[in-house]
Simulated scan of single mutants.
Amino acid sequence: MTDSKTKFVCRDVKVAYGDFEALHGIDIDIPDRGVTSFIGPSGCGKSTFLRCFNRMNDTIEGCKVTGSLRMDGQDIHDPSLDPVLLRARVGMVFQKPNPFPKSIYDNIAYGPRIHGLTSTKDELDALVETSLRRAGLWNEVKDRLKLSGTGLSGGQQQRLVIARAIAVNPEVILMDEPASALDPIATAKLEDLIDELKERYCIIIVTHSMAQAARVSDKTAFFYMGNLIEFDDTERVFTRPKNSQTQDYIEGRTG
């Protein structure tokens, strides 16, 4: 169940790549705890908007973000806010699993070491175990922590990446098409994991699969051609959409 508290308040958020405006003034309130999914056809601005929440668009040359985006009341574009610290609070899981070419242990320990989250080896060991347990991976890898993370299966790699994000104690986890490279069994495991994690984190997921959005999310936002068309409880969006464009997309008439 979604927490009633609001995590992000976005007002008139626009994103432009040079002269091309990819997002046209998005207004949305993202709740804390629970899962919010972004759906819509390819190129509609879902992933562009997702990257606004951890300022990943800052890293794209020629990309300009305007408008107000506040997290827990703080403007995330405030010059006093270090983007590196923001990205520790707002973790990201990409479409293709991207474990570091390091051991499973070091994949998880990397962030806590950089941010000074533990002071002893025992504390770090405990944090690595806790993170892997939360990501549903501990029992599968506990006897091979020294082996490379890149040697795991695709589904295990994606859960390793989630464990890596969890290890720095984030408040938010962004997921950009996290299951698109996974087989159905690995996808089901990932969706079960998302269902467990939503009790603890604000999760925002971009998915091309409407069935997945319907299964995992509490709230759904439908984007079309750079506009936010509809945002509501997932069940309402899929069964009683207010906008005919949403209805057409869900019924497969546009896309």
Rank of each mutant, 00 (worst) to 15 (best):
C10Y: 07
C10F: 06
V13A: 06
V13K: 02
K14W: 08
V15A: 08
Y17E: 02
G18K: 05
D19N: 14
D19M: 08
F20Y: 14
E21N: 10
L23E: 02
H24F: 01
G25Y: 03
I26S: 01
I30L: 15
I30P: 07
I30H: 09
R33Y: 15
T36V: 15
T36S: 14
S37Y: 10
S37F: 11
F38H: 11
G40L: 07
G40N: 05
P41V: 09
S42V: 04
C44I: 00
C44G: 08
S47A: 10
T48P: 11
T48N: 11
T48Q: 09
F49K: 09
L50I: 07
R51F: 08
C52N: 14
C52P: 01
F53E: 06
F53G: 05
D58N: 12
D58R: 00
T59H: 03
T59K: 12
I60S: 04
G62M: 04
V65F: 06
V65K: 02
V65M: 12
V65A: 10
T66Q: 06
G67N: 01
L69F: 04
L69T: 01
D72R: 00
D72W: 07
G73C: 11
Q74V: 15
Q74C: 07
Q74K: 15
Q74M: 14
D75W: 11
I76E: 09
I76W: 13
H77A: 11
